[in-house]
C-alpha cells in the first residue's frame, strides 16, 4: 500500500496501462510537457515520450474525433477534455459519433477508448468550469460512465476503462484531486458497473457519487453519533453500467433511499435511481424516496454561493434527520 493523492493515482492508472499495452496512447491539451492543468498527468510525457503522450491544440472536436478514428483502427486512446463543461464543444463527437457508431454499423466498428475529464464544483470557477455533467453522458446510449471517489478507485477504474472494449467516460472530480488515500501496490484493475457499500447501516440508504461520497460518509457518521440514525452509504462509482443489484438489496434492508447528487436537479442521475427503486423496490419502501441535489440553476462563482448550492454535509444531515422523524 502506498498513500497517493487522487491526481497521482490518475497518472499511476494511465502509466500502468501504457506500460502494459503499446496500443494505449494519450492526447489532450497541456497533458504532456505541462503535466496537465490539474497536474494529474505529471511524469507521463517524460516516461512515455511525445509519440505516445501528445499535446494537442485547443480543438476538442479534433481531440475526440482523433481518439475515435484511432480506436477504430487498432489503438486504445485516452483523450483528456480539460473541463467536462467543454463537452459542449465536442458533444457531437461524443454523443452522435462515438456513442452510436458500433450500433449503426451493426457491430463492424468497435471503439475501445477512454475520455477523461475534470468534473464538478468546489473551485469557485463559475458556471462554465464547475458543472457536473455525468448525467449528460448517462443519457446517451452507447457510453459507459464512471465517476470514482477515491485514489484507489480512480486508478483501478481508469485501468478498467482502458481495457474495456467500449467507449468509457471517466469523470474525475476537481475537488478530489488533492485528496489522499491508500492505493494497493502493483497492478490494479477494477470492474466497471460495480457499486460499493462503504458504510453499512440499517435505517436508510444514501446513494452518492464522486465528491458527494465523502460528504455522505461524513454525514452518516454525524447522523449516527448525533441522532442515532444508521445510514448505509453506497458509492455508485459507475452510472453505466449501473449496479442496481447492490442498490436494490440495500433498500430492501433499509426501506429508505436518499440520493446525493451534484448535478442540477432535472434529469439528474438520481431521478433514474429513484425510478428504478420506485418500480422494483416499491414494496420495500417505508417512505418517499428523497433526492438531495444542486438546485436547477447554473453554478454561481463566489465561495459563499457555491458552497450553499452544492449538497453539503450539513444539508445531507439535516435532510435525513428531518425526513426520518
Amino acid at each position: 500500500m502506498a498513500e497517493l493523492t487522487y491526481r497521482e493515482a490518475v497518472a499511476a492508472g494511465i502509466a500502468q496501462e501504457m506500460a502494459r499495452d503499446e496500443r494505449v496512447v494519450f492526447l489532450g491539451e497541456d497533458i504532456g510537457a505541462a503535466g496537465g492543468v490539474f497536474k494529474a498527468t505529471v511524469g507521463l510525457f517524460e516516461r512515455f515520450g511525445p509519440r505516445r503522450v501528445r499535446d494537442t491544440p485547443i480543438s476538442e472536436q479534433a481531440i475526440i474525433g482523433a481518439a475515435m478514428g484511432a480506436a477504430m483502427t487498432g489503438l486504445r486512446p485516452i483523450a483528456e477534455i480539460m473541463f467536462s463543461d467543454f463537452f459542449g464543444v465536442c458533444w457531437d463527437m461524443i454523443a452522435n459519433e462515438i456513442a452510436k457508431t458500433r450500433y449503426m454499423t451493426n457491430g463492424q466498428i468497435s471503439l475501445p477508448l477512454v475520455i477523461r475529464t475534470a468534473n464538478g464544483a468546489g473551485s469557485r470557477f463559475g458556471a462554465q468550469h464547475s458543472q457536473s455533467v455525468e448525467n449528460w453522458a448517462m443519457a446517451i446510449p452507447g457510453l459507459k460512465v464512471v465517476a470514482p471517489s477515491t485514489p484507489a478507485d480512480v486508478k483501478a477504474l481508469i485501468a478498467a476503462a482502458v481495457r474495456d472494449p467500449d467507449p468509457v467516460i471517466v469523470f474525475e472530480h476537481k475537488s478530489l484531486y488533492a485528496v489522499k488515500g491508500e492505493v494497493p501496490d502493483g497492478e490494479t484493475v477494477d470492474t466497471l458497473g460495480s457499486a460499493k457499500v462503504l458504510h453499512p447501516g440499517k435505517d436508510c440508504t444514501i446513494a452518492a457519487l464522486a465528491l458527494m461520497v465523502p460528504r455522505a460518509l461524513e454525514a452518516a457518521a454525524r447522523l449516527q453519533s448525533e441522532h442515532g440514525i444508521s445510514c448505509e452509504v453506497i458509492d455508485l462509482r459507475s452510472l453505466v453500467p449501473l449496479d442496481t443489484r447492490t442498490l436494490l438489496a440495500s433498500v430492501e434492508k433499509t426501506a429508505r433511499l436518499y440520493t446525493v447528487e451534484e448535478n442540477p436537479r432535472l434529469c439528474g442521475w438520481g431521478a433514474e435511481i429513484a425510478s428504478i427503486v420506485a418500480e422494483e423496490g416499491f414494496w420495500n419502501l417505508d417512505a418517499p424516496i428523497c433526492r438531495i441535489t444542486t438546485p436547477h440553476i447554473p453554478l454561481p462563482a463566489a465561495d459563499r454561493l457555491e458552497d450553499a448550492t452544492i449538497p453539503s454535509v450539513d444539508r445531507i444531515v439535516e435532510t435525513v434527520r428531518r425526513t426520518m422523524d
Binding site: 481531440i63 474525433g65 475515435m68 478514428g69 477504430m72
Partner: peptide
C-alpha cells in the same frame, strides 16, 4: 464530424 475522425 468525420474530418477529425479521419485524422484519428
Amino acid at each position: 464530424a468525420h474530418l477529425p475522425v479521419a485524422c484519428g
